[in-house]
Design a protein around this nucleic acid. Structure first.
Lengths: 247, 247
DNA sequence: GGGGTGTGTGCCACTGAGTGGAACACTTCA
DNA sequence: TGAAGTGTTCCACTCAGTGGCACACACCCC
């Protein structure tokens, strides 16, 4: 319809995307995963190398520092993270659990920052990690306060199951989002991973659009969600406030 | 000599690089800064948009979340940062100053992580920021322990002045690096910015190659470098040790 | 009003840059 | 000794990307 897009950039993103699973890949492996000709990968990797987008690791390749450099300049991250940082520290200190900061990207959630607690059990989430919005606490918190077309898109794509208890029923999701919208807090019970529960609350811009969300997560046995709710909600409101103040 | 490289990727990196100074740019501004035709920028920005490498901000453009996502997967960052984090926290607590973690990228230094102290004065350094190695404490610490050809390349490119007291004399730099190599610590006196001093120490891999460097920085009046030296050195050695242990 | 000058967007003939098959040099393993 | 993997190089073909041009707006000032 709208295409034809730029094929070279498509191919390049295919190559970079191949590093989703493994951190270091050879030319042949890249060619196999991307479906590109080996010579194409070879040549392309060469120029990406010159730009620091890729780096050599022996004879194989790795994502390069230039990507990190560019990634640190992304505005969506910068403002929100800066505003949230002190409150995330407070929240971790108060709850002694893991604190997450995330934004919505299309129908996915991307984690901007994670404050872990040495005392708390390690969780599998990673900074820069991506999960379907409907399967996470922060995702549901943001969806509940997003325009209808965002939810439509989520439903259109289908509620992919990522854990045993992921919500896959559209009616169930819509119902939950209604109560989330009323309470300002979303709970998650092992929907993104086994044993993990969390309470999340949205961060709003001055114009009431969604900027992101924070959450407190822990293991289902050890964490009493109801006790976390007010703290998460309070922190989210505080971040929203400082976000508005600095405009 | 070795080229011809891929022109499309070159142009794309030109566009992304244009966001060095400003965070949000229009098609016309991009065309002007990159020297590309407006139609080329327009089309290219469109496909970058589809990949999330760029995002819209009204009618203008911004670096996109996908870059952040990819940047967080860069191996050079991942391992070192993880190993260094706890020691950086200790160092900040012990010195009540700003702690930096950096790696060497060509002849530049790139900051991987910065631990600021609310009590300490804010410094201009930024995560993902880039500075010439010869102009910074962490840079000198790493150069002193790098193979000769790295220093050769630094000298070949010329010692660019970034602050009033930046070292621009090759002989002076070489002399300093010799004592750095002997002491395991590099000092910086307002060479990267006015009023800023720092003590830095290199982090080495098991094979004695340079992995990165950490530093303690502060304002020249308030910070006694000599008192910082042992702490920085100790932390750097500790990080080197845990880095080696996890191989 | 009009007529600057700034946007963003769309079109399309031209051509040279990117493609990928094939061939090569090396290792590794059997 | 060969088979199967790797990375690298070459090069004729052609199709994808280019950028000049033109258009649709939105300003602001005379």
């Amino acid at each position: 319809m709208t295409e034809p897009p730029n094929a070279v950039i498509d191919r390049m993103m295919l190559i970079l995307g191949a590093f989703d699973t493994d951190r270091v890949l050879s030319v042949s492996e890249l060619a196999r995963r991307t479906g590109l000709a080996k010579s194409t990968v070879h040549r392309m990797a060469g120029t990406l190398l010159e730009h620091g987008v890729l780096e050599r690791s022996g004879v194989r390749f790795t994502l390069g520092l230039r990507l990190f450099e560019l990634g640190e300049r992304v505005p969506r991250k910068l403002g929100l993270r800066e505003a949230a940082l002190p409150y995330m520290a407070d929240l971790r200190a108060a709850t002694r659990q893991t604190v997450h900061l995330a934004v919505l990207d299309g129908t996915d959630v991307v984690y901007l920052e994670i404050f872990r607690n040495p005392e708390a059990p390690p969780l599998p989430s990673r900074t820069g990690g991506r999960l379907p919005a409907h399967a996470t606490g922060v995702g549901k918190a943001m969806l509940a306060f997003s325009p209808q077309r965002v939810l439509d898109e989520v439903l259109r794509r289908g509620l992919r199951r990522v854990a045993e208890r992921t919500i896959t029923d559209p009616a169930m999701l819509t119902r939950q989002l209604r109560t989330v919208r009323a309470n300002g807090v979303a709970n998650e019970y092992e929907e993104s991973g086994a044993g993990i529960v969390c309470a999340a609350s949205p961060i709003l811009n001055i114009d009431q659009t969604v900027a992101g969300a924070i959450s407190v997560s822990g293991l289902s046995g050890r964490l009493d969600l109801r006790r976390m709710t007010p703290a998460v909600r309070t922190a989210a409101l505080a971040i929203s406030r400082t976000l508005g103040a600095r405009t």
